[in-house]
Design a protein around this nucleic acid. Structure first.
Lengths: 139, 139
DNA sequence: TATTGACTTGGAGTGGACTTCAAGGATTAT
DNA sequence: ATAATCCTTGAAGTCCACTCCAAGTCAATA
């Protein structure tokens, strides 16, 4: 009774994938509907049965989403990828554009981290010495 | 007639600050309402008149927001900062927690950048040679 | 004094990314 | 055969961070 569901457990269900990536099944369906991944393979009964390629798309989508790229942009890349090699220049342009976005984001996060680190140092010092000494330009 | 508004232009209005930081006046009011910055100084008539310290708070809020820290978290930091030095350990804990968040975010953005860079290289090559050669594990 | 125009507030509306729901279909267990 | 699950879809709901709006106030100018 080791949970053989759906024939001989030959399928990789949405639940399996959900667990594997730590994302809800609802989110996976949403990703597919939104075009962030190409249509997933199905069984005869219409149940999703993720193949290796489907899983690779899911992984890519999650990687890009976790960096903050909008669903719409990822969907556009997927759409181009499904539309023949004519679209390679378009894909390249899209990827280069998004690289810029991520680099800028990286920069801003770095700036915020610098602020946090500075404050942390000051507060740690305050705790050690019992006195807060901001210089006049700080909040 | 060099636009002297409100007495001798002694005030720094929300409009001025809006321009200075490239953020809408509505957003600045929202930031204040949400507690992301402490209450801004006002004229006798109730009009906001941003002082240097107010501006420093705005700048901090923007820096942290642009890195993606939630409004709620920034508001909590501001609230603690307005509540006496008893809250220094709390502030420190909050800052260290958020540093972790930003470092993780930095990591994820880096991973996505690696993916983008790799794809960009492959596509550039495809354009040069006229052939796409993904290795078998790619999308 | 009246008009103009920027400011005020509270509240409603928007967009993005899910999340939850209702109704129904498929597969395995009894 | 029927119940118990798990799956399906489309649509509605939620949360966040603004953004916009209506009605009213304030300050400088005609």
């Amino acid at each position: 009774m080791d949970s053989p569901k759906y024939k001989e457990m030959s399928t990789t269900t949405i639940k399996d994938v959900s667990k594997q990536f730590g994302i809800s099944a609802d989110a996976l369906r949403y990703y597919e509907r939104a075009g962030m991944i190409p249509p997933v393979s199905r069984t005869a009964g219409g149940v999703r049965d993720y193949q290796d390629e489907d899983l690779r798309w899911v992984e890519l989508a999650l990687c890009l989403r976790s960096a903050g790229l909008p669903v719409e942009v990822i969907a556009e890349y997927v759409q181009l990828s499904q539309s023949g090699s004519d679209t390679i220049p378009n894909r390249l342009a899209l990827l280069e554009q998004q690289r810029k976005v991520l680099l800028e984001q990286q920069r801003q996060t770095g700036a915020a981290l610098d602020r946090l680190n500075h404050k942390i140092t000051v507060y740690q010092n305050a705790l050690k010495t019992g006195t807060l000494n901001w210089n006049k330009e700080e909040t």
